[in-house]
Write a protein that binds this DNA or RNA. Structure first.
Lengths: 147, 147
DNA sequence: GTAAATGCAAAAGCTTTGCATTGGC
DNA sequence: GCCAATGCAAAGCTTTTGCATTTAC
């Protein structure tokens, strides 16, 4: 928790930026959300707690948190707005998204991770992050998939 | 080419929809674009050829083409709008996106594809499609990645 | 004290929608 | 001829931006 705050505080200072109360509140909130979220979710949760931070500030802060690897973009369906999920504390995982009910399932496979590294090396590509999402029908929806 | 048009024509008829001149033009154009594109790209290209189709129609048509598996969404960076790429004629592939220069590299790995199927079976998930994009620095940018 | 950040409200996109008109089938 | 599709322009949304004010350092 505080390790992340410390890291970000330091990173901001290094580039002459400030760790404001708003940024702290956003960071704290973001780290407490263990599902995917978007700007509106965040705005609502903060307001619900009586913390008044403008949407503009949230929009301006999230990219900072992405840069500092506190959060990253999550997969989103077409038409949806950008969604995020926090990184720290969470181990990396990929997603299965049900195109019927919209539910997201997380998974992780070591072999796939390793193969990705092999491929990157082949292309002399230096990987920083990856997103993988498989779309289809979850076990609940696959039997009733008539549209 | 015409196999796809035939398939779509049939699919539309089956559901009481029409294969209009506009839809034909959009389909044809989409199949001729071998890179990622968005609505604005498409609108510009059509207009450039003297084909007048409204944006509204494009917005209404693309989902039809996705449903009929002529195109699918391509990965896009945050802040970008939705991008598409055509499917037919193209073999499936995944992407590496350089976060410095924005260039996209395509690749495909059979082992990863197979592992994905294994995972889906484990979750009783019926895969329809998947997107995988690895983000990082391409071989040209990895040496000059100071920002 | 100074440069950066905030909040507000306005502006700027992209996308959707209502409605009259057009056109497949 | 009927119902779906189109085009236009307006509306809807999310996201960005200008500017005065506040604040971290």
């Amino acid at each position: 928790m505080d390790a992340i705050e410390y890291r970000i505080r330091k990173s901001l200072r290094r580039s002459g930026k400030k760790f404001t109360a708003e940024r702290q509140a956003i960071l704290k909130e973001v780290m407490s959300i263990h599902t995917h979220f978007d700007v509106e979710d965040l705005f609502g949760r903060l307001r619900h707690k009586g913390i008044r931070v403008s949407r503009a500030t949230i929009y301006r802060t999230l990219p900072l948190l992405v840069e500092n690897k506190a959060i990253k973009e999550a997969p989103h369906q077409q038409g949806d707005f950008v969604k995020y999920e926090h990184i720290a504390g969470h181990t990396h995982h990929d997603h299965m998204v049900c195109i019927k009910c919209g539910k997201t399932y997380e998974f992780k496979d070591e072999q796939i991770e390793k193969l990705q590294d092999v491929i990157c090396r082949r292309y002399r590509f230096k990987p920083v992050d990856h997103h993988m999402d498989i779309r289809g029908y979850c076990h609940k929806c696959r039997t009733i998939k008539g549209g």
